[in-house]
């Protein structure tokens, strides 16, 4: 399922809301979520899980093929931790 399909299914659940409004709503939710991660804020959705940013320090590494030393820059990476409810329902359906 991709974003466009998600919007479509959402639209079916809310027939009184115009499709482009549904799209606008989804996009503004996603923008807010992305903006939060950009600013190092967490996203915590009860029943779903949380998204947050981890820091990776820069380090010296080697290219395993050539054996050359290289510096890996410090970076931020996004992480997701599934919420309790999601973990439960996914294992119930197993």
């Amino acid at each position: 399922m991709k974003k466009s399909e998600l919007i479509e299914r959402l639209g079916e659940k809310f027939p009184h809301i115009a499709k482009n409004d549904v799209e606008k709503i989804v996009n503004s939710m996603l923008d807010r979520m992305i903006g939060a991660l950009r600013d190092n804020d967490r996203i915590e959705i009860r029943g779903f899980g949380s998204l947050f940013v981890k820091f990776r320090q820069g380090r010296e590494a080697r290219n395993p093929k050539t054996g050359k030393r290289l510096t890996v820059q410090a970076k931020r990476v996004p992480f997701f931790k599934a919420g309790k409810e999601l973990k439960q329902i996914i294992n119930k359906s197993a």
Binding site: M1, K2, K3, L6, R9, L10, K13, F14, I17, V22, I25, V26, M29, L30, D31, M33, I34, I45, G47, F48, L51, P78, F80, L86, I89, I90, S93
Partner: peptide, 26 residues
């Protein structure tokens, strides 16, 4: 209702075994 349904749809997609691909997030 929309916020709730949005996350419910993602959840049910995952439960059904789908890959849920949200552009901009992952």
């Amino acid at each position: 209702d929309i916020v709730e349904a949005f996350f419910d749809l993602i959840k049910s997609g995952i439960v059904r075994g789908e890959k849920v691909k949200i552009k901009g997030i992952g």
